Amino acid sequence: MGYSTGLCVNLSLFSSAAAVTGQTEFFTAPDIKVSPDRVTEGSDMSVSCHSIPSPPSVPLLYALYKNGQLVQGFSYSNGWKYTATQKEDSGDYRCAAKTLTAEKKMSHVLKIQILDLFYKPDITVSPDQVPEGSAMSIFCQSLPTPEPLALQYVLYKNGEIARGYSRSNEWKFSSTRSEDSGDYTCGAKALNIEEKLSHVLKIQILVTTASYNPEIKVSPNLITEGSDMAITCHVTLTAQAVPSLMQFALYKDGVLIHEFGYSNIWKFPPAQRKDSGNYTCGEKISTGEIKLSQTLQVQILGKDNTVQNVVRLAVSACILMACFGVVSKYFRK
């Protein structure tokens, strides 16, 4: 903000009513005005103070007050010009007029509000949850009012400049790391306008590291051809891990048979002899790191094997019953 003074010429001369009645009134109470009526930040403004002396030859001195404080001392200039006004120039203004001998007279209060040329920016991040290793974008949005305005933007992290001023209001991070976590703010500015800062946006990069390699399990333990089978990939997590961000895959005999996805359970309804094999499961975290389980050997029993097993069980039961009968007769004797 800058200001200068200028002499405003009184527009009319008159004798006060008091002078007509024989009493001498040296000057009227001053009137304060601002030009233009609507003042936007960055533009110029003029404040003037008008008082009419009687007789016209009486010299007047003028002063300017803002919020009750003297900002321009008494002088013969009754105008003050502000260049490139800022928001802090808003306030309650009054002016004073006096002669060399008379006490000062105060004007009414003139409330001056410097209007925003653009609003305080808003900072956002996308996506809302940022896994380690994924892409992240930070946006800084400030709406100009009332017409479009060429703004420049800057990004701060923990109070330090992370990305310098440019016309772009978006900053992209292609592969985030835990050290990208922090308190972010953005700033916007225009020509002759001081920087405006957004609120603080706290960004936490989510870490998805597991404590141990995954463990693979099959259910049920004994699987016959035609029955249902489920394979599960189980992971033990650290306190910082985010389970919803992990993906799992299933391998058979070293070949990927189920692509990485968010489910860690694979069902085989019904199981076939060809489903027998050596299974491993993989767990992938957001950084792209893959951890594999130990190998699990799964053997699907054929139906013929099941019948043979039933026959064997039946024969064994008969033999046991016969032996039990023989032993019982022996003890009766």
Rank of each mutant, 00 (worst) to 15 (best):
G2V: 11
G2S: 06
G6V: 13
S15Y: 07
S16W: 06
A17C: 14
T21L: 04
G22L: 00
T24H: 08
E25R: 14
F26A: 04
A29R: 05
P30I: 15
S35P: 10
P36M: 12
D37E: 14
E41Q: 05
D44R: 05
D44Y: 07
S48P: 15
S48G: 09
I52D: 15
P59L: 11
K66W: 08
K66C: 09
K66I: 09
V71Q: 11
V71E: 02
S75G: 05
T83R: 03
A96Q: 07
K98C: 07
T99Y: 01
A102V: 10
L110A: 02
I112Y: 06
Q113V: 11
D116K: 02
F118Q: 05
Y119A: 11
K120N: 13
V125E: 03
S126E: 10
V130A: 00
P131K: 06
M136Q: 15
M136C: 11
P148C: 15
P148K: 13
Q152F: 06
L155K: 02
K157R: 06
G164K: 07
S166F: 07
R167K: 07
S168L: 12
W171E: 00
S174R: 09
S175A: 11
R177I: 14
S178K: 08
G187K: 01
A190R: 07
A190K: 03
L197H: 01
L197N: 00
H199K: 02
L206V: 09
P214M: 01
E215R: 13
I216A: 14
L222A: 12
I223T: 10
E225D: 09
G226P: 05
A230S: 04
I231N: 02
V235L: 09
T238P: 01
T238Q: 15
S244Y: 12
L245I: 15
L250M: 10
Y251P: 12
Y251S: 00
K252P: 07
K252H: 07
H258F: 01
H258A: 08
E259Y: 07
I265S: 14
W266D: 06
K267Y: 05
R273P: 15
D275S: 03
D275R: 06
N278A: 09
Y279N: 02
G282H: 15
E283N: 09
S286F: 02
L292R: 05
L292V: 12
L292I: 06
I300W: 06
I300D: 02
N305Y: 12
T306D: 13
V307P: 02
Q308R: 11
Q308I: 04
V310N: 11
V311G: 05
A314C: 15
A322S: 14
G325S: 10
V327F: 07
F331N: 09
